[in-house]
Every structure is written in structure tokens, then in C-alpha cells.
Measured scan of single mutants.
Amino acid sequence: TYYTVKSGDTANKIAAQYGVSVANLRSWNGISGDLIFVGQKLIVKKG
């Protein structure tokens, strides 16, 4: 599943929404920190 980042989103918020850990969200998308951008497409695997 892909999720498009919206204004006000955070890695924590997206992870919680899908029931996954922030560490997994980072791993699936090659993100090292919490910096995400509006319009960015993230791979999300439901927990």
C-alpha cells in the first residue's frame, strides 16, 4: 500500500494510523530520520 504524505502528517502519525512501528515505516522507505515531505509517497504495510 502507498500513502501520500499530507500537510501536518508525521512519521509517528502515519505509523499509528496503519498500526505499524515508525522503525518499520522508515525501513520500508529508506528514511533515516523523521523528515518526510508533503506529496511524498510512502510504502506502508498494514500491521
Rank of each mutant, 00 (worst) to 15 (best):
K41V: 15
V5D: 02
T1M: 13
Q17D: 10
A11T: 15
I36P: 04
I31R: 02
S7T: 13
Y2W: 13
K6F: 03
T1P: 08
A15L: 03
K6P: 01
A23P: 06
I36H: 02
G8T: 06
D34T: 08
I14S: 00
N12V: 15
L35T: 13
I14M: 01
Y18F: 15
G19K: 08
L42G: 01
I31A: 04
Q40F: 06
V5G: 02
G39V: 04
I14W: 03
R26Q: 13
Y18W: 14
T10H: 04
S21Q: 06
K6W: 03
S27L: 15
Y2K: 06
D9L: 00
G33R: 06
K41A: 08
V20Y: 03
F37V: 12
N12T: 15
A11P: 15
I14K: 00
Y3E: 02
A16G: 08
D9A: 00
N29M: 03
N29I: 03
Y3A: 03
L25A: 00
K45T: 11
I43S: 04
T1N: 10
L42V: 06
V38K: 06
A11L: 15
Q17Y: 13
T4H: 08
K45V: 11
G8Y: 05
K6H: 07
V44I: 14
I31F: 14
A11V: 15
A23D: 14
S27A: 14
D9V: 02
W28A: 03
A16Y: 09
W28Q: 03
S21I: 05
F37Q: 10
V22I: 12
Y2F: 11
G30K: 11
V44T: 05
D9I: 01
K13H: 09
L42E: 00
S27R: 12
S21Y: 04
Y18G: 01
Q17G: 06
I31Q: 04
A15W: 04
G8W: 04
G47S: 12
K41M: 12
T10I: 04
Q40V: 06
V20P: 00
V5Q: 01
G47H: 12
G8K: 04
I36N: 01
G47Y: 12
K13E: 10
G39Q: 02
S7M: 14
L42A: 01
G47E: 13
S21R: 04
D34W: 07
V38E: 10
I36A: 02
V38T: 08
G30F: 09
N24P: 01
W28K: 01
G30I: 06
L42P: 01
K41S: 09
T1S: 10
R26Y: 15
K46Y: 13
F37K: 10
I31N: 04
L35E: 15
G33I: 10
V5M: 02
S7V: 14
K46M: 15
A15F: 03
G8A: 05
Y18Q: 06
A23S: 11
V38R: 05
L25H: 00
I14H: 00
I36R: 00
N29T: 02
Q40A: 07
K41N: 09
K45R: 13
G33D: 12
S7I: 15
I14A: 00
R26E: 15
D34F: 08
T10K: 04
N29F: 04
W28L: 05
N12D: 15
I31V: 07
F37E: 10
G47A: 13
V22H: 04
